[in-house]
């Protein structure tokens, strides 16, 4: 009997010691895989960036630090034009999609759920649901039909296509922000005889601003980075930076491509880092 009691007491204690030695949450090998993934995710980009500063035609053998490929890229007419087209399209798409997304978010969050809300969400998120290549050729088909019927051409088509696929990206953070906001402040405003427009202008909009900024930044990054839809829809003279880079890679690898790529990656990283800061502020 005594024997039994001692083993009964000893076992959990021994196990507790064992458990403490190996952390409850730790899994063997997981840490190594996680680190390997981070290295694998960043190593190619780091190699690309490092060799954009290489004073040599080679993108693999390091000779000396130099900015000559950046200079070459900035002096390249094709790259300058493409960058301008990219910025123009991204700005228009960002402004239009953010306004539309903000309105839609206000309609779907500030009141009780309504009939058709699920359908509205499904429509707004539709561009995320289907492969980009399908959207790309479908949009091309529609636009070629419209061009044939109306005879109107121009960069407006590309801007319209970008606006459409930017909406769900702008919508996400704005809706998330609105869902976290209570109605009490607006109600207090209404008690103090604020008109609905005043309440929106001086209460809702300032509170919503971080969400709108986050949405606009996402839309801008997504538009700036788009390849497939732009590849299909863009007409002559509407080459964006990613399309220029794709063409340049097909012609042959040069450090100039590394330089342009580094600039484009830099812009995305900067915007996403800002976004992270904005969102952390929102959480506080």
């Amino acid at each position: 009997m005594a024997d039994l009691a001692t083993t009964h007491d000893a076992a959990p204690a021994a196990r507790a010691r064992k458990l403490k030695a190996r952390d409850l949450k730790a899994m063997p090998g997981f840490k190594a895989i996680a680190w390997a993934c981070i290295v694998a995710l960043y190593l190619p980009l780091i190699v690309l960036i490092v060799f954009s500063f290489n004073d040599n035609r080679s993108v693999v053998k390091w000779t000396e630090f130099s900015l000559r490929w950046y200079q070459a890229a900035l002096e390249n007419e094709g790259i300058r034009n493409a960058a301008w087209v990219s910025v123009k399209v991204a700005l228009v798409a960002t402004i239009l999609s953010t306004i539309a997304a903000t309105m839609a978010a206000l309609a779907t969050t500030r009141a009780a759920a309504f009939k058709g809300q699920g359908l509205a969400y499904a429509i707004i998120n539709q561009p995320l649901m289907i492969p980009e290549i399908v959207t790309a050729i479908a949009t091309l088909s529609l636009f070629s039909l419209v061009k044939y019927v109306t005879g109107i051409t121009g960069i407006g088509y590309l801007m319209a296509a970008h606006t459409a696929f930017c909406i769900p990206f702008a919508f996400m953070p704005i809706r998330a922000r609105l869902e976290d906001m209570t109605l009490t402040l607006e109600q207090a405003g209404a008690d103090l005889y604020a008109t609905p427009l005043q309440a929106f202008r001086y209460i809702t909009l300032p509170l919503l601003m971080p969400g709108i900024v986050a949405g606009a930044m996402l839309a801008f990054v997504v538009s700036l980075d788009d390849v497939i839809i732009t590849l299909m829809v863009a007409g002559p003279g509407e080459t964006t930076l990613p399309i220029y880079i794709l063409g340049a890679i097909r012609r042959g690898i040069t450090p100039e491509i590394n330089a342009v790529s580094t600039i484009l990656v830099g812009v995305s990283v900067l915007l996403v880092a800002l976004l992270f800061l904005v969102q952390r502020r929102m959480e506080k």
Binding site: A101, M103, A104, T108, A120, I123, T135, T139
Partner: peptide, 16 residues
């Protein structure tokens, strides 16, 4: 409020 977003996506993403 829903109009613009839904209309843009219906016309440029679903109609195609």
């Amino acid at each position: 409020l829903l109009g613009p977003a839904v209309l843009i996506i219906l016309l440029i993403s679903i109609l195609p």
